[in-house]
């Protein structure tokens, strides 16, 4: 998978596409697990959606937040 570093590589594009779907599946599974709990309440959906959003593939693009301001990305690990 070393060619992953080569940006315009079509194999990389395919791989990214596949992983994108896998990520989606992983996130959905985690969300579903929480939503199926007995103590689940719809007010939690806001938080779950937030957790899904930044992990979505386009998360690093500049976003306009609900308050109309630009989000800036920070790495805090």
């Amino acid at each position: 998978m070393n060619e992953i570093a080569v940006k315009s590589n079509p194999r990389r594009q395919r791989l990214l596409q596949r992983v994108r779907m896998e990520i989606h599946a992983e996130l959905e599974a985690a969300r579903l697990q929480l939503q199926q709990r007995a103590d689940y309440h719809p007010t939690w959906d806001y938080f779950l959606n937030l957790l899904m959003r930044p992990l979505a593939p386009d998360r690093l693009q500049a976003e306009v937040g609900p308050s109309g301001e630009t989000f800036m990305q920070f790495g805090t690990v």
Binding site: E26, E63, E69, M72, Q73, G75, T76
Partner: peptide, 11 residues
């Protein structure tokens, strides 16, 4: 007018 966005991932 900026908001921080956390990057850490558990995926």
């Amino acid at each position: 007018g900026l908001h921080p966005l956390r990057l850490g991932s558990g995926c």
